[in-house]
């Protein structure tokens, strides 16, 4: 049983007619740190909802560690810890109670879960707040509380739906370290995020979803490798005729700026020197247009 998640021809059409998923096939290996990428409304949260029992699927099959979500839905749910995109705990309940209650729902008695709860809350820097009602927590603390709540159930698959949205940089890095530790210890992680840097930092494999369909599914390394070319923004005194630069796909942006696409390994200094000589433009500065993953994201979503 090497598949943590196995999804075949998954279809979801909502009551209002929206086709959220149009036949998704997806496999996630046990132990993987897998990213699910896509724009808002692409269908990522719908997939998570179906796996966790919050959304009824219209068609297709899905299983979690070999447990079919239709026929063994409770066994499948027992494998999953989920950190949703939006806060979904009782705002009046105490932090410790929220975690211990979830343990109870998974069949772990309060007394037995207490020491594990303490460890988790300490690791996630929430122990000092354990007796506070959850509404008193900051946004970042609430995110960490949902992680603690998901982990107290001892899942084999942790699903994180944009867990670092709205979390400050320092905390985000600390959460990344923690999640990497958990994955190293054997926990399979499925992550959706808008912070594409997270994918490069943490994930081994990724799938990109657009309009309810998977458009690519590969290792993060290979996906990044797709970016054979990188776009640079070049500032000059005045853009003249860029016709001779067609081989580097030069595109005029304004009177002082143009962009060019360079293949990996290009000697940029020599190329710019050549550009300057062939066009007479005086180059002031240049810079890469953007983050590689963002470029990939946009490329694949075209």
């Amino acid at each position: 049983m090497n598949q943590a998640i196995s999804i075949s021809n998954l279809v979801k059409t909502y009551a209002n007619g929206t086709e959220a998923l149009k036949g998704i096939d997806l496999q996630v290996e046990a132990g993987d740190f897998f990213a699910l990428l896509g724009a808002n409304g692409a269908g990522k949260t719908t997939i998570i909802g179906i796996l966790t029992g919050l959304v009824n699927k219209t068609g297709g099959q899905a299983s979690v560690f070999g447990h079919d979500i239709d026929h063994e839905h409770n066994a499948a749910k027992r494998m999953i810890g989920v950190v949703p995109q939006e806060m979904n705990f009782n705002q009046f309940e105490k932090v410790e109670d929220i975690v211990l209650t979830e343990a109870g729902y998974f069949g772990i008695p309060r007394a037995e879960a207490a020491s594990e709860c303490e460890q988790l809350l300490k690791r996630l820097e929430l122990w000092e707040k354990k007796s506070q009602p959850s509404r008193n927590l900051s946004g970042g603390m609430k995110r960490r509380l949902m992680i603690a709540r998901a982990l107290i159930t001892r899942p084999r698959l942790l699903i994180l739906d944009e867990p670092t949205a709205g979390v400050d940089v320092e905390l985000r890095y600390s959460m990344w370290d923690y999640l990497r530790d958990l994955n190293r210890n054997g926990l399979t992680v499925l992550l959706t995020t808008h912070y594409l840097e997270e994918v490069e930092q943490m994930c081994r494999n990724a799938a990109m979803i657009k309009d309810g369909k998977i458009i690519t599914n590969d290792s993060v390394r290979n996906l990044v490798g797709i970016l054979e070319k990188e776009t640079y923004v070049v500032h000059v005194d005045r853009v003249t005729d860029i016709g001779p630069l067609a081989d580097i796909n030069a595109q005029r942006v304004d009177d002082n700026t143009f962009t060019m696409e360079l293949s990996k390994g290009t000697d940029i200094a020599a190329l710019l020197n050549k550009v300057s000589q062939s066009t007479g433009m005086s180059i002031r500065d240049f810079r890469p247009q953007g983050n590689r993953m963002e470029k990939l994201f946009l490329e694949l979503l075209k």
Binding site: T52, G53, L54, N74, A75, K77, R78, I80, V82, P84, E86, M87, N88, F89, N90, Q91, E93, I98, T101, E102, Y105, F106, G107, R149, T153
Partner: peptide, 17 residues
């Protein structure tokens, strides 16, 4: 109230029948 606050999801994602 648990539906309104979405905390009912704590139960729905659990294996509790």
């Amino acid at each position: 109230s648990s539906k309104f606050q979405r905390s009912v999801e704590e139960l729905l994602v659990s294996p509790a029948p």
